[in-house]
Design a protein around this nucleic acid. Sequence first.
DNA 1: ACCTAAGCGAGACGGTACGTCTCGTCTTGCG
DNA 2: CGCAAGACGAGACGTACCGTCTCGCTTAGGT
Lengths: 203, 203, 203, 203
Amino acid sequence: MKTPDTDQPSDPEGRRSIGARRNPDSAEAILEAAEAVLLESGYAGFSIEAVARRARAGKPTIYRWWPSKAALLLDVYRRQKRDVGQPDTGSLEEDLFQLARSLFTLWRDTPAGTIFRSIIAEAQSDAKAAEALAEYGAERRRHSGRMTERAIARGEARPDANPKVVADLLSSYAWTHLLTGRLDEDDDTLRAAIRTIVRGVLA
Amino acid sequence: MKTPDTDQPSDPEGRRSIGARRNPDSAEAILEAAEAVLLESGYAGFSIEAVARRARAGKPTIYRWWPSKAALLLDVYRRQKRDVGQPDTGSLEEDLFQLARSLFTLWRDTPAGTIFRSIIAEAQSDAKAAEALAEYGAERRRHSGRMTERAIARGEARPDANPKVVADLLSSYAWTHLLTGRLDEDDDTLRAAIRTIVRGVLA
Amino acid sequence: MKTPDTDQPSDPEGRRSIGARRNPDSAEAILEAAEAVLLESGYAGFSIEAVARRARAGKPTIYRWWPSKAALLLDVYRRQKRDVGQPDTGSLEEDLFQLARSLFTLWRDTPAGTIFRSIIAEAQSDAKAAEALAEYGAERRRHSGRMTERAIARGEARPDANPKVVADLLSSYAWTHLLTGRLDEDDDTLRAAIRTIVRGVLA
Amino acid sequence: MKTPDTDQPSDPEGRRSIGARRNPDSAEAILEAAEAVLLESGYAGFSIEAVARRARAGKPTIYRWWPSKAALLLDVYRRQKRDVGQPDTGSLEEDLFQLARSLFTLWRDTPAGTIFRSIIAEAQSDAKAAEALAEYGAERRRHSGRMTERAIARGEARPDANPKVVADLLSSYAWTHLLTGRLDEDDDTLRAAIRTIVRGVLA
DNA sequence: ACCTAAGCGAGACGGTACGTCTCGTCTTGCG
DNA sequence: CGCAAGACGAGACGTACCGTCTCGCTTAGGT
């Protein structure tokens, strides 16, 4: 790596076009700048102008590739997110607890939390963001629903348990805590919430 | 109905000062205009300027009494909200279900939903809104926590059930559905979610 | 002197009405405050609000007695001005020089200069100020014209010399130097200007 | 004349950016609008907002190129002013008289007078305007000083006559008459004033 | 001794303008 | 054709004053 300036205005002497196609350096610089701005100034300071300034990019370059603030935010989120993975401990409660705990930790200790909050906020006034968020949420619920499916399969959960409902309750709990600044719940409280859900579906 | 001008710029020939004290007509006109703007243009179009124009009020009059957009939003919400009340059917599941159902209905069929979404969005970039929202949320959870307390008292719920956790799960579920445009869940799905929570705390 | 608080918000615990007539204390406090504001913040900071704040007076009290900013300014000027008097040395050049010199000194070293500048500025957009200024200027020219009249009478100046023209040239020179911040002309330059005028009317 | 819309909001369907450089059309429209506003509403009604409205320009576009009201006023003055030229009749009195007369006429019969009055007024509360005005005044005095220099050179004026003083007296006389609404002096009065100055420097 | 009339401080009111910020679009000139 | 750059019209931001209004109080002068 030549330039180690990860969150500075990057290239000292700007990028040029590389011909009639998208310049990946620009895209990278813009996403990096977007993340940095979001981290430093929060959603309130997150403007296309600020990102362009930071990335030493022209505003039209941003608008060309990301039609809305929401699209940029989503890309930043996707790029940033190191997937929390899916635990498989053989116990539904333990699986859900570890998932929730690692999500809370990720959101609290990395930019991911700020970014995701911003996306949800944006979705309240931007239809495209709302749609993307809905799709993303559904996907996450499908994903975490598998844990309940496995619990049913191994006889831990009752056969008529609804994996979607469990996933919905869990992700609602996590999202709401993110949005209201309550990511520092201690293990006992978190576990009590998870246990309440799990008990509701045990065989 | 006495005054048919519910969503027009109200008074044909404006309000005056009524001395060195707040003019309730102005306050009323501003709140009404704020609600109308929010309803017609959504959170995206909700600006102090737009409210002032609509209310035929000066911007300083708004800033004098509401230090931030968030404060105005909260007042609009409070003014608009007809409290959903607290059912007491003798069954925890039924209590929670009716509460959730009436909340979903309120949010879907009145401006309250749009307004509350806006407050949550605003809280993602405005510290004062965040604080106000946190306080409001805590109060709501205390309120709905009483239903579980009653269930414990009558032996329906286990003695070590945590009313706060139940309330948190329920309100998280409701808020998240509001924010992601899923207020039209059918009764079965809604009841399945409620039942999962309730089963987790039954004796 | 009873109260030494010449430029503070005056009375610690406010003035009241003294019945159905003008309260001279208020008038005094307002003029004093106006002068203080003008001195401290210049014409740019001279607003009715600022004067009212400073004088602990209500705005209507000011508007009741001074219909415009210009009227207040003129009163402040009249109240402040210690008349420069009219020298009579037996020499026209010396008379004019001493008059100009004392005027320059007064304007440079006391609030009078700032105040008078403000009046002239105000007169450029306020007809009433313009009228008052015109009248005042004419009176001043009549006044200083007497020096030339005396010089004609004693045979120093030619009989057909026009006192009004001399006075006009002199006051124009002074006013313009006030308005362009050139009140620090040294004695030689000032005397050269006066001498040029005087030579033009000597016998 | 192709476009008859000399003082209307100009272009029916607006101007666009012409790239990363100043758009001369906008500059022109703004100066034209500024002049029109000044002419119609006077200095009192001259606001950046009014100019922007009239020119169908955004406020930032004005602030981008003119840092203050004063700067805009000066540009309007420069643009408007058809230089009064410098007469050279071989007689100092005649030179000065014609200069003064044409200046009075220009100020009385064109917008230039209103504009220049506004600049002087603005300079009484805006330091930058004051500086610009000082520089402009010095330049004008240098310029009109040349007439006296020529008179000295041809032996008409005494060798020790001070051209700066003559120019100062003349321009002071003119400026003051502008500011006090006395531009309609008849030829006799004007000539008497000029003659008084000139006699003071004749050989 | 009452009553009315006016002045007083206070400060809210509908407005206008301020100077700054960001929006999303446009156009240039270089590569 | 993409790129950085940055100007453009538009319009919201939150603040300062404008000049007007009404309040509750005070006092004086006429009854």
